[in-house]
Design a protein around this nucleic acid. Structure first.
Lengths: 118, 118
DNA sequence: GCAACCTTGACACGATCGTGATAAGGTTTG
DNA sequence: CAAACCTTATCACGATCGTGTCAAGGTTGC
């Protein structure tokens, strides 16, 4: 067979077989499969499993975090949306000064309160 | 006061006051404070709270995810480490072919098993 | 052909997340 | 000065995460 089976991979990487399946379900490491469906871990997968462990422990992050980072780099829409949110400036007519804008918000608030107390 | 208080901000953004504090604890929106320590939400914070809601709902992600994205863009070490992991190629002496490498791994496995069964 | 592997699926359990509620105390305002 | 706000801290509770374990069944190898 052209690769280690899941138990062998577990021994050489330090992950449990259960976790190897879990890591796979997170889309992080997806080994080849034999004709019968057995997972076959090649050198690259084994190496990445080892460094994944270091990555998580070294920075106190979780599998879900790396999974999200993966989504970020695959889903352009998502990446752009997140990026846009971080960089968002106030997009509001420049001719309304903060003070007026706040006053309007506060009045809206009071209208809401008034409506509630009916 | 130069901004809305937490309950006013809650009404105009749709978040609960509890969640506004939670969002702050995630480092996502940190409003100014009055002298007495009251949170004061300005136009920018209010706008970002509204778009944050859209971001989460529009992409099925969570506050923790955005929090992690924030860590990614602030912590260069982390970003580089994650990036490096995604791009990692096998870093193993090129003169050892896969077949030999795998054989070595499998033998190590057998040595381990032998050691265990002592 | 049988022992030792592999598969998926499910149940379980502690830890953390997302969220509300409540308490004890300080601040603002009419 | 009292009502209505604000603060932090805590308890609670369902949902999800990380992980183990077990069951039912297919595959491999001596």
């Amino acid at each position: 067979m052209a690769g280690l089976t899941i138990n062998e991979a577990a021994v050489t990487t330090g992950w449990s077989p259960r976790m190897l399946r879990y890591v796979e379900s997170a889309g992080l490491i997806e080994p080849q499969r034999s004709a019968a469906g057995y997972r076959l871990y090649g050198p690259e997968e084994l190496q990445r499993l080892r460094t994944l462990r270091e990555l998580l422990e070294g920075h106190g992050i979780g599998l879900g975090d790396v999974g999200f980072a993966l989504r970020l780099r695959r889903d352009t829409d998502l990446r752009d949306a997140v990026e846009a949110w971080f960089e968002a400036e106030v997009t509001r007519p420049a001719d309304i000064p903060d003070s007026a804008w706040l006053r309007w918000e506060q009045e809206k608030h009071q209208r809401l309160l008034a409506a509630l107390s009916d």
